[in-house]
Amino acid sequence: MTLPAYNFAYLDEQTKRMIRRAILKAIAIPGYQVPFASREMPMPYGWGTGGVQVTASILGPDDVLKVIDQGADDTTNAVSIRAFFAKTAGVATTTRTAGATVIQTRHRIPETPLKAGQILVYQVPIPEPLRFLEPRETETRVMHGLEEYGLIQVKLYEDIARHGHIATTYAYPVKIEGRYVMDPSPIPKFDNPKMRNSPALQLFGAGREKRIYALPPFTEVVSLDFEDHPFSVQRFSQPCALCNATGVYLDEVVTDDRGGRMFVCSDTDHCETRQADGHRGPGLPQTQQEDAA
């Protein structure tokens, strides 16, 4: 018995080729889910195996990798995936959005606007936006083929009838270039507008479901809505308690057992960068310097 030895970035070259071909077709057909022969990875399905396979297939020795989960670089799964690539590919890693060439994410798009040349790789649990309306792959495939998206509009409209709002708050479906309806992965709908006309390339990997899809830069991405109920994003009534940022996505942190809570940036890099630049939120002790600024 020989003990295992692994290739650069773990995947063997044949697997990378297969995934690379899928990525190119995904770019050529934005929003369409390309089936690929997803491999078992050394982390469980649901932990980002799709994103990891995409990242492993595009990554080169000169890349600088950032990994976030819930917007944070320090969540355990982000740490684990970052360590995996540092070990198997020896690439440089960073927590700075601006300094990364490849960013793998679960559930968020960074607040710092992405630039041309950056690649955002999403981990996707259920790539099929129609799956919860129609569980059968054979049916949903035909619906995409025929551009038959009435069902999803009906679902959104039922929400309005029942609640007065569209009650989808994350994994909010989008239409790409007027053709394919796509699941943006479980990002909060707050992040949906960032997908539209982004200068960065966005790749989506679903390992267990064996699908890859893509948004080239400068692609039209429209969140589904109705004329009388236009799409809108979450708004927070207070700024980040740490960096005073507004117009960003906030996490609610329970601070004691008496109902005390505070709101802080979900994007830790964004928050730390702002704090380093001298921004201070109401949750931090106020200083003289702060007042002067």
Partner: peptide, 25 residues
């Protein structure tokens, strides 16, 4: 079962960003 256990067990990973969105709603 490798697929099933992965996806069932992934529910223990943090989901607080989406949960926040649901709380709000």
């Amino acid at each position: 079962n490798v697929e099933a256990t992965g996806f069932v067990e992934h529910l223990k990973l943090p989901h607080y960003v989406d949960f926040q969105a649901e709380l709000d709603l």
